[in-house]
Amino acid sequence: MTISSQSHSITMHETQRCLVVPIQEELSQTAAVIIQQQILERVHARPLIGVVIDLAGVQIIDSALWTTFINTSRMIKVMGVPSVLTGLNPGAVASIIDLQLDCDEIETAMQLEDALTMLTRGCPNPSELAPAPEATPAEADPTTNTAIDASNDAQ
């Protein structure tokens, strides 16, 4: 297992106008701050409707690392873009709770797909989204099925 530290560049990609940031290895806080900077620059440069930070590869989360991610999420929010954390493993979650870290204001989901559903739900221009075979046609055409009612209710 490796640890990211300085001079780290993370591979981010976009889907359905959401920025997806997969974190695939243990992070030092320094690396987390560098990633924070990269995310903020992307959010500033591109019209995005949401950011997903996928922590599936991070097994050890201490208070400093968690605070960095919470602050990243806050900063993105201030820029007008919602974000969702995904992929937290049971060990990390137990530590977050034992350490009594702040997790009330953060949106989380287990899977990337769930996060994208959360973020694209209220999207004003769903037809402009990249192909999303499940959700997009249903939202674009209100007559198709009952799934839209459920998603509308959830708003």
């Binding site: 640890i3 530290s5 243990e26 030092s28 806080q29 320094t30 050890i60 201490d62």
Partner: peptide, 14 residues
Amino acid sequence: EETSDVAYAALDAK
């Protein structure tokens, strides 16, 4: 000494 040592120490402890 630095934050990367923190992450390594955590992994070593694990």
